[in-house]
Each structure stands twice: as C-alpha cells, then as structure tokens.
Design a protein around this nucleic acid. Sequence first.
DNA 1: TGTGTTTTGTGAATTGTTTCACATTATATC
DNA 2: GATATAATGTGAAACAATTCACAAAACACA
Lengths: 192, 192
Amino acid sequence: MKQFTKHTVKNSLKRIFLYRACLTRLKLLGVEKVYSYTLSDETGVTSDQVRKDFSEFGITGNKRGGYDVDELIDKMEKIFHRNKDHNLVLIGMGNLGTSLSRLKEIIDRFRVKVAIIAVPEISAQEVTDELIQSGIKGIINFAPVLLKTPADVIVNNVNLCDELESVIYYVHNQMKSEGTKNLDLLYRGTKY
Amino acid sequence: MKQFTKHTVKNSLKRIFLYRACLTRLKLLGVEKVYSYTLSDETGVTSDQVRKDFSEFGITGNKRGGYDVDELIDKMEKIFHRNKDHNLVLIGMGNLGTSLSRLKEIIDRFRVKVAIIAVPEISAQEVTDELIQSGIKGIINFAPVLLKTPADVIVNNVNLCDELESVIYYVHNQMKSEGTKNLDLLYRGTKY
DNA sequence: TGTGTTTTGTGAATTGTTTCACATTATATC
DNA sequence: GATATAATGTGAAACAATTCACAAAACACA
Ligand SMILES: NC(=O)c1ccc[n+]([C@@H]2O[C@H](COP(=O)([O-])OP(=O)(O)OC[C@H]3O[C@@H](n4cnc5c(N)ncnc54)[C@H](O)[C@@H]3O)[C@@H](O)[C@H]2O)c1
Ligand SMILES: NC(=O)c1ccc[n+]([C@@H]2O[C@H](COP(=O)([O-])OP(=O)(O)OC[C@H]3O[C@@H](n4cnc5c(N)ncnc54)[C@H](O)[C@@H]3O)[C@@H](O)[C@H]2O)c1
C-alpha cells in the first residue's frame, strides 16, 4: 500500500462510497462474491479504476477469485473509521434538522466526532466559532454560507442551490453521453 | 475562450459557485471591485487558479483594475443559465421536501428543468423511471440509492451519510493543514 | 508623455489521475 | 499434475488539472 497522497485519496474515497452502496445492495440480494467488472457494471467506474482504488486503500482480493463481499464491506467500514468511538453534535432542530431522517441510524452506526450545522444562515458563523472553541475538527454545513475556520478544521458544505445549478449547467451544455464516467460531483447513469 | 473540456469545466464550475458566494457577500458589504487575490483570500483558491478559471469561462477583467463585482456576478448568472426559462419538479413533500426552505426562492429565481427526488428509498427508482418517460434530463437525488438512468440524464446525488463519512475520514487521517486547498468535496478554512 | 508599478491572462512546466498493458497468481478441467 | 483460462495488481504511458513565470495592459503620478 502506497503512502496516501491527498488527491488520490480524495477521488478514490468518493468512489469507495459508491462501491459500498452497491455492495450493501448486492449483499441484500444474496451476492457473496464480486469481481472488479461487477462493480464496474454497477457503478460505471472502469474495472481498472476499481482495482486501482482498492490497491490505493490496501484492499486485496483473490486472483481469479475476485473479492468477498463481506470482506470488502468490512474493509470499507474500517476506512470510514466506523469501528472507532466518537461524538456527534447536531445544531439546529428546525425543518432541516428534524428532516434528517436517518440521523439516529447514523449516530448509532457511525458515531463521529463532527458537528452538523443546520441553523439559519445568520447564526452559522457564530455557532461555528463556538464549536471550534470546544474542539470540533469536522463540520458538515447546511447553511448556505462560507464558514471561516482555522486551517485544521474540515468543512464539508452541502448546498442545494449549488447542486441544482450544477445540474442545470450540465443539462444545458448537454455534454454528450460517454457512459458513466464523472463521479465527482455529478455522474451519469448507464443501464436502463 | 477555449473549447470547454469536460473535466476542466467540472472542477472550475465548482469553484465558480464559491466565488459567487463570496461575491454576493462582498457586494452586500459594499465592495464594488475585486482582484484575483481578493477572491483568493476569501476562498483559499490560489489567485492563479481564480484567473485561470475565469479565463476558462471567458470572464475577463481589467489589467491593473481587477474585476467589477456586479459584472462578475452577472457573468456568473449567465453561466448558470439563470436568465433562461425552465421548469422544476419536486417529488416527495415529506420531511425533507418541506424542509427545503429556500425552494420557493430557487424556483422563482432560477426556474430550472430538472427534478428533485425526495421520496423514500424504495420509491426512488420508480419515480425516476416516470420522470425520464416525461423527458426530464437532470435529477437531484436525495434518496440514498444509486439510480439507474440512461446515459444522457444527469444525476446529482446528495447523500448525507457520504458527506459525513468524508469528514470523518479527513478528521481521522488528519491531513496536515496546508491552507484552504481542496474545494472539491471538502475544503478547509483559512482566516479566523 | 514617460516611467514605475500593479494586475491580468495565458503558454509552459509541473503535478496529479486515469488508463493501458501485462506479469502474476488462483482456479478449473482434463 | 499439466495446461488453459480468468482474474488481480501495478508499473508505465497517456491524459488532465494546477502552478509557475512572464509578457501585455492599465493605471498613477510626475
Ligand atoms: N444546504 C441545503 O441543502 C439546505 C436545505 C434546506 C435548508 N438549508 C439551510 O439549513 C439551515 C436550516 O434550515 P431549516 O429549514 O431547518 O431552518 P429552521 O429555521 O426551520 O431551523 C433552524 C433551527 O435552528 C435553531 N437555531 C437558531 N439559532 C441557533 C443557535 N445560535 N444555536 C442553536 N440553534 C439555533 C432554531 O431554533 C431552529 O430550530 C438554514 O441555514 C437553511 O438555509 C440548507
Ligand atoms: N440525502 C440526504 O441528505 C437526505 C437527508 C434526509 C433525508 N433523505 C432522504 O430523502 C428522502 C425523503 O426523506 P423524508 O424525511 O422527507 O421522507 P418522508 O417519508 O417524510 O417523505 C417522503 C414523501 O414522499 C412521498 N412519496 C412516497 N412515494 C411517492 C411516490 N411514488 N411519488 C410521489 N411522492 C411519494 C410521501 O407521500 C412523503 O410525503 C428519503 O429517501 C430519505 O432517506 C436524504
């Protein structure tokens, strides 16, 4: 396993989410073993890329035998630090805060040490400042503002307007279909 | 202005969102003119990158004079096709659907031709199939499932679990502070 | 009007990511 | 067990994105 480079990990990490989503679905369907091309078919990521990503995270399979679904899921859980103990804070139990329907599940299953900000725009920075005082190092921000934080704090913004406008942009500049390729912000489906 | 390449546009487009967020804030504060380094300070993107991005989208400023805030915002509106007429559909007026607090504003201001899916996981594919039958080419999907769509349909997934786990990952693998750099999925703050 | 300074805009160099190509290994079959 | 086959895993090549470096333009001020 190579030394992680920030960029490589960032891209492959996002794909790992995708692989896992497929794997849990496949597991429910009773599938026990997958090949790189299985995941390729399901996600649209090339099988080369699947293997390269696995290699990146030190995930190995069996030559000729493919990968064991349970084992893969397990290794991914470890990547996401599901097995460690953390704390989570949700600030703002308004419409959005209460709508996070799977939150309890998330808290129970993943137990993280980050904060979710779902307060009105105007209070977001103030709340952030308090959180940082109390040692929070990771924030998911639903308020449509750019939070000021020290450099060691990770902020992940979820902004519906931006998501929407991305889609508009792509729909309008109808970039011709090339199969499922760009999984970064957007992706295109394949099979139908 | 160069011919758009898919990748270049994708990355720079995301940064354009960021610039615009800053610009509208700066405008409120009465700022009328910005330089590439102003936006760099505000967003953490290098000033080189800011200019390169602008160049990519055919946005030009004044040598020595910087950029006019109003003009920049206006050009960005055009990039996002705010000035065109469209239709928008929201499917699922449950907790999440009703929590999209700025939705009316979005519909009024942006008028798009995409669908927002906020129905339970189990119904998401079925709803998607119907939407595609009726000609929808862009979807924002809040259900935590990978939708199957034809290759010419743009899908943008918003998945809280994934966002959360990204943050956990980065907090854990405490990638040492290098200022605000990665704006892709995550970004780090600068000033405090 | 000329000179110095600041800032843009963009090719070139560098750095990062994906794809290719193939050696390696596991399994199935005879 | 020998052979054919199917899959992984990974350097090397190709491609894409970012950073560098600097020419060109605009402005300030004498
Ligand atoms: N990014 C997105 O996709 C998206 C979607 C919907 C809403 N939003 C944003 O999420 C935020 C919340 O939206 P909402 O509809 O739930 O709003 P809301 O007004 O229904 O709820 C806000 C809640 O925050 C609480 N609050 C206010 N100030 C607080 C403080 N200083 N500390 C703790 N709690 C505080 C309020 O009591 C309230 O319960 C808003 O900023 C909204 O713009 C974002
Ligand atoms: N991705 C995220 O960040 C995030 C956050 C919260 C919730 N969610 C997801 O968003 C979805 C909605 O969450 P929610 O809390 O609002 O759920 P909800 O149960 O409160 O609301 C679902 C709504 O969809 C409607 N619906 C069901 N089937 C439909 C159909 N075939 N056509 C039209 N409408 C239909 C229901 O009547 C209901 O009003 C879920 O899939 C949930 O997992 C995602």
